[in-house]
């Protein structure tokens, strides 16, 4: 368990940075933004580090800081993506790139909490209980947000949907 000292903090951050960065990248889809989210997360963590010994599950706690940081940055801004600016449609180097771009664009049009729920559950393989803890909501809410988020993605992408379905 962390004892609240600086060497403990440095060791902890070095040990977890890659995993945090990966989660941040999956949440926001952009390397630079992911780094900013991790930077903000570890800054918050350091600010709280002296009292960190009271935290039962440090990884879950840090994870929730990261998800909140993502939500705070996205909040109220998610729907503005691409508005007023025609979507850039450069010729894709190969089909996978366009598919990713389209999916990512669709995901950014889903409300931020639903984005977070979908990414954490389906890309990060996190159980419902962990996602609920990260978001500060009930497991029931995570389940309903999952259903709403998937329904929204279906609508945005058009139905019937074959994108991403390995068939």
């Amino acid at each position: 368990m962390a004892d609240g000292s600086d060497p403990e903090y440095v060791a902890y951050v070095h040990g977890r940075a890659a995993a945090l960065r990966r989660t941040a990248y999956l949440l926001c889809g952009d390397t630079h933004q992911a780094d900013d989210l991790v930077q903000e997360t570890i800054t918050k963590l350091y600010a709280r580090w002296p009292r960190i010994g009271r935290v039962d599950n440090l990884d879950a706690y840090v994870h929730s800081i990261l998800v909140r940081a993502f939500l705070d940055e996205k909040r109220r801004g998610w729907w503005k993506v691409r508005l007023g600016v025609p979507p850039e449609r450069p010729a894709p180097p190969h089909p996978g790139v366009e598919e990713r771009a389209m999916l990512r664009a669709a995901l950014t049009r889903v409300p931020p909490r639903q984005q977070a729920v979908l990414v954490l559950r389906f890309l990060c393989d996190q159980p419902v209980a962990d996602v609920a803890r990260a978001l500060g909501c009930s497991e029931g809410t995570v389940k309903s947000q999952t259903a709403h988020g998937l329904a929204a993605l279906r609508r945005i992408l058009g139905n019937p949907l074959e994108i991403g379905m390995a068939r």
Binding site: V13, T31, H32, L103, A166
Partner: peptide, 27 residues
């Protein structure tokens, strides 16, 4: 959901721009 989001799986490119010293200073 897993099938739908699978194309977005991936790793961030390049070296991390994470600065632990700055996090400690700001923190």
């Amino acid at each position: 959901g897993v099938a739908l989001l699978r194309p977005l799986a991936g790793e961030p490119d390049g070296p991390a721009r994470i600065d632990v010293a700055r996090a400690m200073r700001d923190g």
